[in-house]
Write a protein that binds this DNA or RNA. Sequence first.
DNA 1: TGCAAAAACTAATAAGCATTAGTTTTGTAA
DNA 2: TTACAAAACTAATGCTTATTAGTTTTTGCA
Lengths: 196, 196
Amino acid sequence: MAKIKPGKNASKRDVITQKAAALFKTKGFSSASMRELAEAVGVEAPSLYNHIGSKGELLQGICFKVANAFISYLDRAENTPAGHATRLEQIIRFHIRMMLDHFDEVYVANHEWKHLKEPYLSNFLIQRKGYEKRLIALLENGIAAKEFKPTNPYVAVLTILSAVRGLEFWQQHKKNISSQVLEDDMVNHLLKGITK
Amino acid sequence: MAKIKPGKNASKRDVITQKAAALFKTKGFSSASMRELAEAVGVEAPSLYNHIGSKGELLQGICFKVANAFISYLDRAENTPAGHATRLEQIIRFHIRMMLDHFDEVYVANHEWKHLKEPYLSNFLIQRKGYEKRLIALLENGIAAKEFKPTNPYVAVLTILSAVRGLEFWQQHKKNISSQVLEDDMVNHLLKGITK
DNA sequence: TGCAAAAACTAATAAGCATTAGTTTTGTAA
DNA sequence: TTACAAAACTAATGCTTATTAGTTTTTGCA
């Protein structure tokens, strides 16, 4: 008589979640099957249900863990005594490091959130929107303080977030360039441009 | 006795492809069913096969049409007499307009290519890689000509392509900002930065 | 008006999917 | 060693999928 799920063995559940992130990343949530996930974990598919509730629950766990990480950092950054430009730079650097250090999960949160079921889908989008708005406010304040050029803050935030997100294509070149050069060059590009 | 597929009625086939692009964009290739596509077209699912070969063929059509558009423009841009900075600016503007004017198809090509079947998958990736390499060469030449700062060309190309790609999130704000402001501000940001 | 082809339809096939039920094995603590 | 629970297993359920076969309707031209 199994089928009780204690809070004890967070370990195995975490292994499954990590493997799920890798699988969802390479095959996409819908194309990834529980059979494949089970094989990656080294178990038969039904055995997974001794540790998790459902396939969708795995996606929820991944998406909201990532969302919380970004929001938490922004909370801290907003209460830091620093100029707007400095704060923006710190945030950009955090995004870059998240992309490099937690690639699978961030990728899945960025790409597969649309397969979240309600009410998680709405919740996720609200959180995203809120995050975006706070960044736009930072840009607006920076423009008002004449630390940034008088550009459209929506466009600037979009440009920055998108550029950083694009690090998902970085995998291949990891060998050739150190992540420090990458981080510094991208920050400089986004803040100061590339033309002389 | 139907089931012959002439080259005549390109029209209906194109309608199906366009609806498929919209559907693949919102639901993802794997989650989008032929039943749903048929409903969008106003027909029963099996009837689609009088006009197309398979679901995968639709994806191929979309992905390679987009790839060809970008490659064709780059061919032309490379043979234009202009400085490297000017050429880069033109290319960025073309990317932005493609995102805005052919949103569904570009989105699908950007997100769902991984569901292409071999040999199309390899082919697509080779084309992408080749395109990227030519852009990197443009950056390298611009840096050598001292038109660009001495930055890592890989990082610069990644930043630019990713930023432009991020216009997929633009849909919502379309009303508030003209696409001309968007295009100009983003080009300025990517070329000259935002800090004063 | 009549004929042939194009394109729609219904019905069926075969495969894959997430998940549940019920049973057996494994690991641990008394 | 015994007992109990955690976690594995096999088998089965019910649903959805893309696609094919075979048939009927629609369309356009002579």
